[in-house]
Computed example of a mutant assay.
Amino acid sequence: MEPGFIDVHAHFVTDAYVARARAAGHERPDGVPGWPTWSATAHLELMDAAGIAVSVLSMSSPGVHFGDDPAARTLAREVNEDGAAVVRDHPGRFGMFASLPLPDVDGALSEITHAFDVLGADGVVLETNTHGVYLGDERLAPVWAELDRREAVVFLHPTSPVCWERSALGRPRPMVEFIFDTARTVTDLLFAGTLRRHPGVKVIVPHCGGALPVLADRINGFMRLFMPPGTEAPDALAELRGLYYDTAGPAFPRQIPALLALAEPDRLLFGTDYCWTPSPAALAAAGAFDAAEPPVPGATWRSLTTANARTLLPRLTASEGGHT
C-alpha cells in the first residue's frame, strides 16, 4: 500500500493574525487579491482527498514582524501556540514549523526555546528577509548558532524584497519576486559562510529551489572569483546539494528536471502550499506527482518524498498516520 504524502509546505492563518496583518498595512498581502481562509476541518478534507498523511503547518509571508519588536514577539508566541493547538487536537495529522520574530534576535532566541522545549515544534520557518535583513546577515549569527546546537530543521519561506515597489512592476510578488528572493537569501547564506559554520542545521528550500537550479553554476563561479586572496574557495554546488528542497508550485514539467540536475532525489520533499494555493491546485499537484515518472527505480514520487520527510522529520511517522 502506498504511503500518504508528508506535506512540508503547508500553511495556516487565523482571524487574529489576519487582523494584525491588515492593521499593519497588509490588506493585499504581497500583492495578491486577498487573504485565504483556513480551518483544520477544510485542511483535513484536502489532505484526505489528496492522499496526504501529514501536513507541517507554518505561517507564510508576510511573517510576524510588522516593525515593532514587542508586538512581533507577542504575535510569534500567539501563532505558535495556535499551531501547536492544531497539532494536539488532531493527533497524527499535523506538524508545525514555529515562527520567529526576526530580526529581533533576543526575541527569536526566546521563541526558539519555547517552540522546541514547550510546544514540541518540528522546526522553524524563516522568511527570506525581514525589513531587508537577509539570513546571512551577521546580526543573526546567534540565532543560527542556537539552531545549529539543536540540529534544527529550518524551513525557508520567501517574502517580498524591500525593492518590490519597483521590481515587481505591479504584479503579485509570489509570481517572480518570491522565486528570486529565495535565491537571494540562499546566496547570502553561501557567501556569508553561514551554512558551512552550522552543519547541524537542516535547511528546506521551497518551490523547487526557486531560481537556484539555473543559477547554481553562476553563483559557484562568482564565489570562486571574489574570495579574498589566499582563501580557498568553497564549493557552492556541494553546499546546495546538501540542502533539502520542497516541490510546492508548478513542479512539472520543467522545474523538477532542473532541480534534479542540482539535488539528489533523497533531498526532495513534497509540498502543496495550501491554503495559499487553493484546494483544486493542491489536488492537481498531488495527482501530477502520482502520474510522473520517479527518478529512482522501484520507487514512486509518493514513497520517495515520504521516506525523505520521515528521515528529516522522524517524529512524523507516515506508517502510523503522523505526529508522535
Rank of each mutant, 00 (worst) to 15 (best):
M1S: 12
L102N: 01
D217K: 10
L57H: 03
P206V: 02
F180Q: 14
S99R: 00
A233F: 08
P253K: 04
P295Y: 14
L268V: 10
P265L: 13
R88Q: 13
E127M: 15
L156H: 11
S61H: 08
E151I: 02
P253D: 13
G51Y: 05
A285L: 15
G230R: 03
A72N: 07
S160D: 09
A284L: 12
T247A: 13
P228M: 06
F180M: 14
V153R: 05
H26N: 11
T159F: 02
A216C: 08
V296H: 09
E151V: 07
L262K: 02
N308W: 05
A108Y: 05
F116C: 08
P103K: 06
A50F: 04
R171H: 13
Q255C: 13
E264R: 15
A263E: 11
I52M: 03
V205Y: 04
T277V: 13
I52S: 00
D106N: 08
A84Y: 02
T14R: 06
V201Y: 02
D273C: 10
F116S: 05
R93L: 08
P174M: 10
A282C: 14
D82W: 10
L269N: 00
I204K: 06
G25C: 09
R93I: 11
T128G: 13
L225R: 12
C208N: 15
T128C: 14
E127V: 01
F180S: 13
P253S: 10
S55C: 09
L109M: 11
D235C: 14
A318W: 13
S39D: 11
V203N: 01
I52R: 01
T159Y: 00
R241S: 10
E111G: 09
D246Y: 03
L240M: 11
E127S: 08
V13Y: 03
T182Y: 06
